[in-house]
């Protein structure tokens, strides 16, 4: 397992931009890429069906479309991102309880401060482990 998550620059910008666009609600989406190297090269912004500043639900139809697109590109869905509009970039008890896949990377984008804060976690059996996020130059 690669130590950490790599984000291409376009993925980073699209992800953070989508989270700002979603305000005042939480923004969410999926990350596609190479699971072996944990490199995210495609961002799939999705609607937050919960339309809430406190919780998010990834649109299931958008998830299906993203899954198919990633497969067609020879990629996989690596994980999910969502924003915390007024709290730290750290998984909430709700996030941990509903984390569906221990192989996924759970990316949090905190918009609490002036600058966005992006952090990534693995969640296994309810245990949270932060991992490095590497931002590629391209």
């Amino acid at each position: 397992m690669a130590p950490g998550l790599r984000l291409s620059r376009p993925v980073y910008l699209q992800m953070v931009g989508h989270c700002y666009d979603a305000l005042p609600d939480e923004g969410c989406g999926l990350l596609g890429g190479d699971a072996r190297t944990a490199s995210a090269s495609v961002c799939y912004p999705t609607d937050n069906l919960a339309h809430s500043a406190r919780i998010y639900t990834v649109d299931p139809r958008a998830y299906l479309a993203a899954d198919r697109d990633a497969e067609a590109r020879g990629l996989a869905i690596l994980g999910v991102f969502h924003s915390h509009t007024h709290t730290d970039a750290y998984p909430s008890p709700t996030d941990v309880a509903q984390a569906p896949d221990p192989d996924w990377h759970y990316v949090l984008v905190s918009l609490r401060d002036i600058a966005p804060v992006v952090r990534s976690y693995r969640i296994l059996d309810g245990k949270i482990r932060e991992e490095p996020v590497v931002l590629d130059s391209q």
Partner: peptide
């Protein structure tokens, strides 16, 4: 037939 996990959570 496709099966995918429901993906949800929140800040609180």
């Amino acid at each position: 037939v496709s099966i995918l996990p429901a993906v949800a959570g929140g800040g609180f």
